[in-house]
Amino acid sequence: MTAGNDAILRLQGVHTDIGRYRILHGVDLAVRRGRVTMLLGRNGAGKTTTLRTIMGLWRARQGQIIFDGQSLTALETPHIARLGIAYVPENMGIFGKLTVRENMLLATAPRGFAQPYLDRVLDSFPMLKVKWDSAAGSLSGGQKQMLAIARAIIEQRRLLLIDEPTKGLSPAMVDQLVGALLRLKAEQTTILLVEQNFRVAEAVGDEVAVMDEGRVIHTGAMAALAGDDTLQHRLLGLSMAAAL
């Protein structure tokens, strides 16, 4: 990936340990401004750990994480979030006892909802308007995922980190979610997106980084990977032709 000075986020030789185990073995990655970068790889490759390390939820033992010229390596998670990085974890991180409105409100600045952003989010996810005062725990899996993404974009963000948003969703829900991601892409939102569903990755991604055993083993254009069955098979153990 030729990120150059265009990169808003850059990981250089990042190592992360969880307990006694080293999960990341020197991750090098660049995320370009205004682009959707897919982070692909088999289970256990280190994708989720990479996102959590960027957010400061797990600490990098070595290496550098630079966001728009500022090192994140020593910062605490709340500081990192306040730089404009929103994180949607694999489990969605929804507060089930709070209402949809309260879940959203938590992600806003102290002044509360900014009307243009709220309107944009409710236009993108009309279901939220219907469920506004319902407990978030009562939503379906797909609705929770919509809420998690809506919460991430309720304020102006500089980077979205999204971890496997389509996991466990019905095909109809996946389609809706892809639509929402494509709208974010059209608005030139910078996204680092972990995804197991290759068709989603192909539909949404501009760039791709493939991980294996805690390292990035391939970077390039998503379209190039999607068009090369041999490369897909070598990197991911699958090919689009087989998936279709």
Partner: peptide
């Protein structure tokens, strides 16, 4: 109230 449910996510929200 959110922290009682999920402390980590509260931190990730800033």
């Amino acid at each position: 109230r959110a922290g009682v449910e999920n402390r980590e996510m509260v931190q990730a929200l800033g």
